[in-house]
Design a protein around this nucleic acid. Structure first.
Lengths: 247, 247
DNA sequence: CGGAATTTGTTCGTATGTATT
DNA sequence: AAATACATACGAACAAATTCC
């Protein structure tokens, strides 16, 4: 219970701890922990939780909604409540909203997200190079080929790009990094359309950079991979810097 | 506005009523966006929101609770509802809970958080070095002195450590990176006590590494700073690796 | 200092839509 | 196709907290 209190202290500062709806959410988290439930396993029904926790239906509902928005529980309408995926969805949601707040802040948000993405990609270079050294990866190559085709046709290749980065980081023994990279990729693709950026002329180099990243990793060259990552982000970086300078 | 609402209400009666609480949260976010509200500014009362959005108070309350858990709004009992700080508190909350789920996962969570912290600290080396080059920073030096005293007395120096890292990154023109580093620092300090790690013998080198980091930055040497960062995290890294190997 | 007014917090009852069996 | 279990939504009433006079 002391652990749960510490977690609560992050969000609730002083006296809110005694408030029913907050303590109910903490109690439900404690229930999950104490019963050793993992993602996908069912929780008691709302009415059962009312009895177990000794609070009203509305309080349980608000607590469940709180936990659902944090992806700690997942509600299936008309059927039941389950332990959630513990994903970083709330992070994405919050950042996208922040980016949508005002036109001025949107470019700033995008620039900040970009810097974090670069730092994370560079930070896993050694681990990735060690894993991919001496391998061949036809699935990833095929995604690059698809990207190239879409790009030349003037179409968006966001889907293939996302899948490429997801698969590339899949062998990483670090769920958090994978989820963070995926989350920021999602923020990225959600925020960019708000800006109406004209299609950059050097967008094709982004596609080719994917091949270079893969080349470097299969050669086991972490440094070359880092250079390729920087080339990969360069066009976007230029577009943002230009937009910030002009605005 | 009124006509549109009526039309929407008729439509929602037909089929979309199930999404009321979700759409209410979206509507409140839209209200914040459309009225250009920023952190700390007041929202309408719950009763007023009921009238404006055309839903019951229970639905408004659930939506507000959802937004509060994402730090998009902030509720003050008996006074009013305000736009929240848009912080990364929900991220911290979720990760601390994930770390508390099972003893096995706790070490894993800590290891993953550590890798992300390192990547972020290394990723801002250039920007920090450019800013600190040729400066002297007595406030940061004083914090290191305090850390040294606490460490030699066998006490925790978490407060000073957190303040050091916060102040060190303060000049960064990237709110997101600052918040992320602070968030992961918080996850870190919340998860570590769950483990009962024995006090490492080389903990003193962590304190000294802070001085080295500052030395490198004041010299404008980004590379040296990166090396100091790695030394700074080394004792903790060793403790975790050892624990994972023994467990 | 005390009390009135305002606002959020909690609870109950009821009706209705939804998914599974 | 019906039955059952469950979540969703609404409204009213009262409690607790905060502010302001």
């Amino acid at each position: 219970m002391a652990e749960a209190d510490k977690g609560a202290a992050v969000l609730s500062q002083d006296s809110r701890r005694r408030q029913t709806s907050w303590s109910t959410a903490e109690a439900i988290k404690g229930y999950i922990r104490d019963h050793g439930l993992t993602s996908g396993e069912p929780l008691p029904t709302e009415t059962e939780l009312c009895e177990v926790l000794g609070v009203s239906r509305s309080s349980v509902r608000e607590a469940i909604r709180t936990l659902a928005s944090l992806d700690i529980v997942q509600v299936r309408h008309g059927y039941g409540t389950y332990v959630g995926g513990l994903s970083l969805a709330p992070l994405v949601s919050g950042l996208v909203f922040r980016g949508s707040l005002n036109q001025d802040g949107t470019f700033g948000t995008l620039r900040e997200v970009l810097q974090v993405r670069i730092a994370l990609d560079l930070g896993v270079a050694d681990e990735l190079a060690a894993h991919y050294r001496g391998t061949t990866n036809s699935a990833l190559r095929a995604l690059v080929t698809q990207m190239r085709a879409h790009s030349r046709a003037g179409e968006s290749f966001a889907a293939q790009d996302g899948e490429f980065h997801r698969q590339l980081l899949a062998p990483l023994d670090n769920t958090l990094v994978r989820q963070l990279v995926a989350a920021f990729w999602e923020v990225h693709t959600n925020v960019v359309p708000m800006l109406g950026i004209p299609r950059a002329a050097d967008i094709d180099s982004t596609v080719e950079a994917h091949d270079e990243m893969l080349d470097a990793l299969e050669a086991g060259d972490a440094e070359a991979y880092q250079q390729a990552v920087l080339r990969h982000y360069a066009p976007l970086r230029n577009a943002i810097d230009q937009a910030l300078a002009n605005g």
